[in-house]
């Protein structure tokens, strides 16, 4: 089983992607999608040098929902800053010390930071132990770091167990 389907989440994602692209769920498209979802991971497995396992799938779903809510919040936040007529913004470049290891969790954390209120991840430190964050309007940089740690990094640590 592990030989035939080496990356089950990836196969599931490919199947969903195929069905969405066809915009149709019939026996024929499902069968072709199933074949592709098994063959493509087998063929491209050698190119994956970042083995990652999803330990807590339910927590990942919860993380995704939190992320969706935060995207809406961040949109309103930025909209307010843009529409405020003469509000002085206080940007800051903040160092964020990483507790996570592994390239996939760090990538997910960096993307999350870019999508959530007021912050964009700008650069990964050369040693891979810290992220450089640009915050658009921040009074207390330490609080921002703590919030990201509490809200996202803790959950990612649990999901990927690293």
């Amino acid at each position: 089983m592990t030989k035939l389907i080496p990356a089950p989440w990836w196969s599931a994602f490919l199947l969903c992607f195929w069905l969405l692209l066809q915009n149709d769920v019939s026996v024929g498209t499902s069968l072709l999608g199933l074949i592709l979802a098994i063959l493509i991971p087998l063929y491209t497995l050698r190119a994956r040098d970042y083995p990652t396992t999803l330990h807590r799938p339910l927590l990942a779903v919860q993380y995704f929902l939190i992320l969706l809510v935060d995207i809406v919040v961040s949109n309103l936040d930025i909209a307010l800053i843009i529409l405020m007529p003469r509000k002085r913004i206080q940007p800051a470049l903040i160092e964020f010390p990483l507790d996570l290891t592994g390239s996939v969790p760090i990538t997910i954390l960096a993307s999350t930071i870019s999508l959530t209120p007021g912050t964009i991840s700008a650069e990964l430190g050369r040693d891979g132990r810290s992220l450089l964050i640009h915050a658009l309007n921040v009074q207390d940089p330490e609080a921002t770091v703590q919030q990201i740690k509490q809200r996202y990094e803790r959950r990612l640590k649990e999901i990927f167990q690293c």
Binding site: R88, I89, Q90, P91, L93
Partner: peptide, 17 residues
């Protein structure tokens, strides 16, 4: 950068490319 940007980089050379 905008003049009231706070640059909190302790070691800026860490982030050069």
């Amino acid at each position: 950068l905008n003049e009231n940007t706070k640059d909190l980089r302790k070691k800026p050379e860490q982030y050069t490319d």
